Computed example of a mutant assay.
Amino acid sequence: MKRISFIILISGILLFLLINRWVDYKAKELTDVLHAEDIIDVSYTYVPQGSDQFENKELGNPQALKELLEFLSQYQVKKTGLRDFESQYPDEQLNLHFIYEDGIPTYSSLFERDVVLVVLTGENQYKVINGPLDQEWVEEFKKKYLMGGNGQ
C-alpha cells in the first residue's frame, strides 16, 4: 500500500511539473508576459550619439504608455528558455524599463525584431511568433515621445 501511495504521489508531482512547463512555454500575448495591467510608466534606455554612457528617459505620459501597450498587445510570443541571445539587428533594438505599480524593481527588457528578452523573475527569452516587430512604428514612437524629435 505504501508503494502504491508513493507511486501515485510521484506521478502527481511529475504531472504537475509537466503541465506547469507546458503552460510556461505555450504561446502568449506579449502584454500578458509583461503583466501590462500593472505597468504605470516606462523608461527608455539608450546611448546618445557621440557617447559611451547609457541614459534613461522616462516616458511620463499616460497616453504614450497606452499607445505603446496597444502596439505590444498585437504580438504573440513563445518562451524559448533562458537568455541565449546575440544581437542580429543592433540598430533595431528597443530597451525599455517597465515601472510597475507595486514598486517591484525590474530590469530592462530588450525588444529586437523577432526576439524579446524579459527580465521580471528571471531573464527569459521569447520568440515573437507573429513578428517581426514593426520597426517603423517603433522609430516613430521614439521620435514622438522619447527623443523629443531629435531622433537619437
Score class of each variant (00 low, 15 high):
1 M>F: 13
2 K>A: 12
7 I>A: 09
9 L>W: 14
15 L>R: 04
16 F>N: 09
16 F>K: 01
18 L>S: 11
21 R>H: 15
22 W>I: 06
23 V>E: 10
24 D>K: 14
25 Y>H: 12
27 A>S: 08
28 K>A: 04
30 L>V: 06
35 H>V: 12
40 I>D: 15
42 V>L: 05
43 S>C: 09
48 P>Q: 03
49 Q>N: 11
50 G>Q: 00
53 Q>A: 15
57 K>S: 12
63 Q>T: 13
64 A>G: 11
64 A>F: 03
66 K>G: 02
68 L>S: 04
69 L>P: 07
74 Q>S: 07
79 K>P: 04
81 G>R: 00
82 L>W: 00
82 L>Y: 01
82 L>D: 03
89 Y>D: 15
90 P>L: 08
90 P>H: 00
92 E>R: 05
92 E>C: 09
92 E>S: 13
93 Q>M: 15
93 Q>W: 03
100 Y>S: 06
100 Y>V: 00
103 G>F: 02
107 Y>F: 14
107 Y>A: 03
109 S>F: 02
110 L>S: 08
111 F>W: 00
111 F>Y: 08
112 E>Q: 14
113 R>C: 04
118 V>G: 04
118 V>Y: 04
121 T>Q: 14
122 G>Y: 12
127 K>P: 06
127 K>Q: 05
129 I>C: 00
133 L>W: 05
133 L>S: 03
134 D>H: 06
134 D>Q: 02
137 W>M: 01
138 V>L: 00
142 K>Y: 09
142 K>L: 15
142 K>T: 01
143 K>A: 12
144 K>N: 12
150 N>C: 12
152 Q>I: 05
